[in-house]
Design a binder for these strands. Structure first.
Lengths: 240, 240
DNA sequence: TCTATATACGAACACCGTTCGTGTCAAATA
DNA sequence: TATTTGACACGAACGGTGTTCGTATATAGA
């Protein structure tokens, strides 16, 4: 079967006939798509998205790279599957108009934590068209919360998009920083203290505010910066 | 001279002695860093960031890829140079407390237009540590406007970061969409009308809001979505 | 004029995503 | 039961990527 048909079939509603029952076992364990996605996610979780190559993934499955293309159309297709699996793990609350802001913040934090659990995977999320079924599911969930909060449909639609975009960009930045710190063989140092020191060392006449407020620029242990921006956008929606 | 020293020298304040005067001319035109950056930007402008390869860049300069490494440490270093050049072209207004919101929107729009003029280059901006001198220059400019607007230093610092992050992510999404449309040989269709049709075709019982508000989700000719988000964040800062 | 040094660059290395052709086995058919 | 079929696994290869090494060369200074 053509893997493109396979991909199309994946997006189609599952066919209730053709019960899998006892799957035929091939020479080795005949690699399923779920296995591929699982090991790929494991690879990303332990070594980062940059380490996810078709060859290394195939190696982790004890086979050659060509074998993957029986289950996956592309690397882009694999990325889509990964993001889909990741989105499927999100729990979307039942909208409660009284607490819509907390609910929305919770969903954003959930997406962030998922992205950060698989370092660099937000790059794939950003490079992907949000057409995938699982991603529209989370979009639908955020839309539901926003509408329950009394936000106008147009603002809700754009806000959901903006929030997801920001979360992905934030996580990508964090992942890049951490990776920089990982292969620290050079002087790319991005330690917070070192960064602040470097900012204060700038010429004060051309960068007056940067040098004066270097502390604020580098502040934010944990996800305070994240919380600030998400809250800023959500509260901005409320004041309308 | 080691190109890493060259990179370090680039970040140092320019040495007033050692006037270049009449540059020695080598066998061919002895490629300068500015030439490299110029042709690289030209390549990105016409064929997109994905087409920016060391080999193609070398080819555009009528040489081999190895020659580039005399002027550039890395591809990452080249990316940094490109973003630096791009940031250097931005004009940062003198802060006026009365119109700080319009000024900030103007800077964001300027960054957006620069990113979109070089399709896909925002990917490089997102993957880069904001340590570069030219990028802290625009950061400084935004900070100045925000502080002039009466925003508290901590909020100003985080807001500038958030805005730049969102602009980069927005431009990356736009560029990916356009690239998809460019090599349209397959059914990746992301035409606005087609996307709306596909959203309305979803099962209404599981995606009630998505199907009902497909029009709003796909709305936004031009940069209305962009203006919405930027204004949302800026106005959110004002109401504090 | 001669040497020293920074530069240009051909060739190669290791890796990437992807494709082609072939071999092999389980299931359907005769 | 014997045979065909066809989906799958996989070795090998192609064209592309970033990067490095060694060498040739042309200019700057002695």
């Amino acid at each position: 079967m053509n893997p493109k048909e396979r991909r199309a079939a994946r997006h189609r509603p599952p066919n209730p006939e053709a019960e899998p029952g006892s799957r035929p076992r091939r020479r080795k364990d005949p690699i399923t798509v779920d296995q591929v996605v699982d090991t790929a996610l494991g690879l990303v979780a332990t070594e980062g998205y940059e380490a996810l190559t078709m060859r290394r993934l195939a190696g982790a499955l004890d086979t050659g790279p060509a074998s993957l293309y029986a289950h996956v159309v592309n690397k882009a297709d694999l990325d889509e599957l990964l993001i889909g699996r990741l989105c499927a793990g999100l729990v979307l609350p039942e909208p409660e108009p009284a607490t819509w802001r907390e609910q929305l913040r919770g969903v954003c934090a959930q997406v962030r934590d998922q992205y950060l659990a698989y370092p660099g995977i937000s790059r794939a999320a950003l490079a992907m068209a949000p057409t995938d079924l699982e991603t529209v599911r989370v979009s639908e969930g955020m839309l539901a919360i926003l509408l329950a909060g009394g936000v106008t449909p147009q603002a809700a639609a754009w806000a959901a998009d903006a929030l997801l975009l920001y979360v992905a960009a934030y996580c990508l930045e964090i992942s890049v920083m951490r990776q920089r710190k990982a292969d620290d063989d050079t002087d790319w140092v991005v330690d917070t203290a070192e960064l602040r020191r470097r900012l204060t060392a700038l010429p004060a006449e051309t960068f007056p505010h940067t040098t004066r407020h270097a502390a604020e620029l580098t502040a934010g242990t944990g996800h305070e910066r994240f919380d600030f921006t998400v809250t800023l956008m959500i509260d901005g929606l409320a004041h309308r």
